[in-house]
Amino acid sequence: MSTAPLRLVTSDERSVQLPSRTRLPVVESEAQLRALLASLSGVDAVGAEARAAKLATRSLKKSTKLAALDLAISMVDLTTLEGADTPGRITSLCVKAIRPDPRDANVPSVAAVCVYPDLVAHARSVLGSSRVKVAAVATAFPSGRAMLNVKLLDVREAVAAGADEIDMVIDRGAFLSGRVGQVLDEILAVKEVCGSTHLKVILETGELMTYDNVRRASWIAMLGGADFIKTSTGKVTVSSTLPAALVMLEAVRDFAETTGQLVGVKVAGGIRSAKDALRYLVVVNETVGAAWLTPDRFRFGASSLLNDLLMQRLKQRRGAYVRPDEFSGD
């Protein structure tokens, strides 16, 4: 797996300036949390969208594109979250995750497979000793509408079954009605159950209404101990968008510059083409810098994206456009 930082630009590169000493904000009451959130500057929505649109037009030349395609493959969380998931389907997903293109051993494995908790044990047994991780969506995914103890049990069982990473959803209902303390408490509780298991916190940006809310929710998740913040469940109409990811990356940058802690970002939902994926990588590089261009700090939650990445990779090597059915469907 290629984890070497990749340079997508040669000039005007932005990167995070880590503080000499860490200053984790003190949040011991809901009032303090509110004050902290209120102190965050507002997001210039038009500016964020314009900047994302500008970065999306950047052209990548061939060698950079090839490196970026491999990097993107290594960042994929290969996902299947369907009611119709069977152990057989999970098996083929895991096999594909380890060796995305069976004809070419140079194609890196993906970062993880992402499944429902009851299928974690099966995925774990298929993946065996490979480096591909098992991520489980928990806490009453995708709506998050369940009692707290049910959510915690969901997480506990997934961890016990062998999940390396937990993707939790925040309580959007509580967030939107202003009960931010409850949102933070829930994340802290889940984090405690997770222990050393990586925690990704799904903000569901498509339901948060404004970029200001995206920035606030990002901060709450990071204060709660998230290892990753994730855009969407992929189960609502508006999934990951480039401007929303930009706002989250800015929050990650600000958090790192305040606290010294580097939090990862996962974008999920609606990312189907290699072109889209490369645009996200450009935004990552331009917002937080090359230190985030590794599967440890940036992920794509996707299923059909992987085939398009493989197709474009093959196209760059063969010089001709490739049949979509060269690669297995899911």
Binding site: G319, A320, Y321, V322, R323, P324, E326
Partner: peptide, 8 residues
């Protein structure tokens, strides 16, 4: 040439 070589 692109059309001729296109595998699909």
């Amino acid at each position: 040439p692109t059309l001729a070589a296109h595998e699909d």
